[in-house]
Amino acid sequence: MELLLVEDNKRISEFVSRGLEESGFTVTLAENGVDARSLITQRQWDLILLDIMLPDIDGIELLQYTRFKKINTPILVLSALGEPGDKVKALNLGADDYLAKPFHFNELVARIGALLRRTKNLDLIENILHCDDLVLYVDKHIVKRSNQEIKLTIQEFMLLKLLMENKNKVLSRTQILDTVWGVNHNSNTNVVDVYISYLRNKIEIEGCEKLIETVKGRGYLIRTKE
Rank of each mutant, 00 (worst) to 15 (best):
D8A: 04
D8H: 02
E14T: 14
F15E: 10
V16G: 05
G19P: 03
G19M: 01
E21G: 00
E21T: 11
T26A: 12
V27K: 11
T28N: 13
L29D: 00
L29F: 02
E31A: 14
G33V: 12
V34D: 12
A36Q: 01
R37D: 10
L39Q: 15
L39H: 11
I40W: 04
T41I: 05
T41V: 13
Q42M: 13
Q44T: 15
Q44S: 15
W45N: 12
W45I: 09
D46H: 15
D46R: 10
D46T: 01
I48C: 02
I48W: 05
L50K: 07
D51C: 10
D51R: 08
M53D: 13
M53F: 02
L54A: 01
P55M: 09
I57F: 08
Q64L: 13
Q64R: 15
T66A: 11
R67C: 10
F68T: 11
F68Y: 10
F68E: 14
K70A: 13
K70T: 11
I71G: 08
N72K: 11
T73S: 08
T73H: 11
P74M: 11
I75M: 06
I75V: 15
I75Y: 09
L76R: 04
L76M: 08
L76I: 06
V77W: 10
L78D: 00
S79Q: 09
S79W: 07
S79C: 06
A80P: 00
G82L: 10
G82V: 10
E83L: 12
G85S: 13
D86F: 13
D86L: 04
K87I: 11
L91F: 06
L91A: 03
N92H: 11
L93V: 03
L93Q: 08
G94I: 03
A95N: 02
D97S: 09
Y98K: 07
L99R: 02
A100G: 00
K101G: 01
P102T: 11
F103P: 03
F103A: 11
F103I: 05
F103H: 03
F105N: 05
N106S: 14
V109L: 12
